[in-house]
Simulated assay, not measured.
Amino acid sequence: MEEIALNLYKEENYHLYEKAIFYKLPIVIRDVILIINFDTELNMQGILGFLENSTGLFLDDTIETLERIQAEEDYKILKAIRSILQKNNVSTSDLRVNVDSQEEYSVNNFIETHGSEYDEMADEICKIADRLYLYSEDRNIFDNLVRYVDTNKSYLIEELTK
């Protein structure tokens, strides 16, 4: 996990985010990448940044990963956030298109990027996101991830030696 975290954001590894390559990786490695990306985005830009950036394109995968690593509360929270998006007929792809249409190097907040019609939705998402592990002293998804990787170590080794 440490090796992945140290090298994930190096330019030579950007290709790993291409869906055709990403889905060929062993599931345990995909799960590690998804949790690292989720945590990084939450720490840097919060839940709205996660949803609108390229990491948000993997929202469904991240939800499934949270379930696999048994981070139950965060799994339920992210599912609720996805439901809010669905209720508003918004996808993370829609959000990403809006971000990509911004002028390069521009600094905008969520509402400036997506429009005031997203204001209520953004508030609802942020309210629920305040319950994520990041803001809790008694939960750390990396504890879940370490247990998950340890439990699946033999499967991972088998996949890597194919």
Rank of each mutant, 00 (worst) to 15 (best):
V99E: 13
G115T: 08
E67R: 10
I77T: 02
D61G: 08
E112W: 00
K162P: 05
R131E: 15
I141R: 11
E3H: 09
Y17N: 01
A20Q: 11
E64L: 14
I35R: 03
T40I: 04
K79W: 03
I157H: 09
N89W: 08
D119P: 05
T55Q: 11
K153N: 13
K153D: 11
F22L: 05
K76T: 02
F22P: 00
Y135M: 12
Y135G: 11
V28K: 04
I84P: 06
D39M: 06
N53T: 03
K19L: 06
D119E: 15
N37M: 12
Q86D: 11
G49I: 09
D31E: 10
G49W: 10
Y23T: 06
I84N: 02
D150T: 15
Y75V: 06
R139N: 12
N7C: 00
G56F: 07
T161F: 02
I141L: 09
S101N: 15
I77E: 00
I36L: 01
I157Q: 10
E3Y: 07
I27S: 15
D138V: 13
I77Q: 04
R96Q: 05
V32Q: 02
I157M: 14
R131G: 09
I63G: 04
L16T: 08
A5S: 12
Y118E: 04
E117T: 07
L95I: 10
S116N: 09
Y23W: 04
N108S: 07
E120T: 08
Y105H: 13
N13P: 07
L48C: 12
D119F: 14
C126V: 14
L78T: 09
E18K: 14
E124G: 03
V107A: 03
G46K: 09
M44E: 11
V107S: 04
I36H: 06
N89Q: 12
E67G: 06
N13E: 05
N140G: 01
N43R: 12
E12M: 01
S136F: 02
L59M: 07
F110R: 14
E104H: 12
E41M: 06
S54F: 14
C126T: 15
L78D: 01
N88L: 07
Y133N: 06
Y105S: 15
D143I: 07
E52L: 12
L85G: 08
S93M: 03
I77K: 04
N37W: 07
S136I: 03
K153A: 11
A5I: 05
A5F: 02
M44K: 11
N144F: 05
S93D: 06
Y135C: 12
D94I: 08
K79H: 06
G56Y: 05
E117P: 00
G115Y: 00
D123M: 13
L6M: 03
N144A: 01
I77G: 04
T92P: 01
G49C: 03
I21L: 00
A20F: 08
I111C: 10
K76G: 04
N98E: 11
I111L: 10
E104T: 06
R96E: 01
F50P: 02
D119C: 13
R82Q: 15
D39V: 05
E18I: 12
N152M: 10
S91V: 08
D74M: 06
C126N: 13
K19N: 08
Q86M: 09
F22Q: 07
D100G: 09
E72P: 04
Y9P: 03
D61F: 10
I29N: 05
L16Y: 02
